[in-house]
């Protein structure tokens, strides 16, 4: 089981390399400026005027500063149903490859303050989990992949400033939302055992911590 997981991770990293090599070409073609401006306005209606996130009925995630490769992969994951979300399926399936690239790099450049609103008293416990992991359940330090400042890298998402209730909802529901096509494993498979290794309280703590990071 473990060997299979490692093998799968190896395949994943190969796939990640291939994905970033192909996306370079899509950037050559530009999204039409007026359509792009209208689309940005459309995204920020829900995700906040500066992409800082918004609390509607559901927590709507921060996009500001997000890694472009992660964002592109998630938008594709919605359309391919690797990631289940009916709202974002509708949103993403009309985006051209050049619009996808343009939006991803646009939101990456935004840098508003975190939206806040998370439980601050849990942040110090969360910091310990983030920087040291949880050895009892074999959870590695989050910082290993997401970076010391939680800025993310490539297809590994930025977590800094993310809405804590969003992070909690994702980690609690990981294998029902992500990696939904067994024959097309993606980077989300790396997180699955980690999400399982965290208790609900640990999830809340680590989510509270990352939500405060700028």
């Amino acid at each position: 089981m473990k060997a299979k997981a490692i093998l799968q991770s190896g395949k994943l990293f190969a796939a990640l390399g291939a994905a970033s090599a192909t996306t370079a070409h899509a950037d050559d073609k530009q999204a039409p400026p007026r359509e792009f401006a209208a689309k940005v306005h459309y995204c920020t209606t829900c995700h906040g005027v500066s992409g800082q996130g918004f609390r509607g009925f559901y927590p709507i995630p921060r996009l500001a500063g997000q890694q472009p490769d992660y964002m592109k992969n998630q938008l594709l994951a919605f359309t391919q149903k690797r990631r289940t979300n009916t709202i974002m399926f509708s949103v993403a399936h009309v985006l051209s490859p050049e619009m996808l690239s343009a939006l991803s790099s646009h939101f990456n450049k935004l840098d508003p303050k975190p939206l806040g609103g998370g439980p601050a008293r849990l942040a110090s416990e969360g910091k310990t989990i983030f920087t040291q992991g949880v050895s009892a359940t074999n959870v590695p330090a989050c910082a290993t992949c997401h970076g010391d400042t939680a800025a993310g890298n490539g297809e590994i998402p930025r977590l800094a400033g993310q809405l804590s209730d969003y992070v909690v909802a994702k980690l609690a529901n990981w294998d029902k939302e992500r990696g939904q096509i067994a024959s097309q494993p993606d980077a989300s498979a790396l997180m699955e055992p980690i999400a399982h290794g965290l208790t609900p309280d640990q999830i809340k703590a680590v989510a509270a911590y990352v939500s405060t990071l700028e």
Partner: peptide
Amino acid sequence: YQNGVADENIVACVACHGPHATGVGAI
């Protein structure tokens, strides 16, 4: 309400007002 109209940049109402349109907080 549930899906929006992505082609026309019309957002899905459900994101903020919820699956049963019951709202939440100041929504």
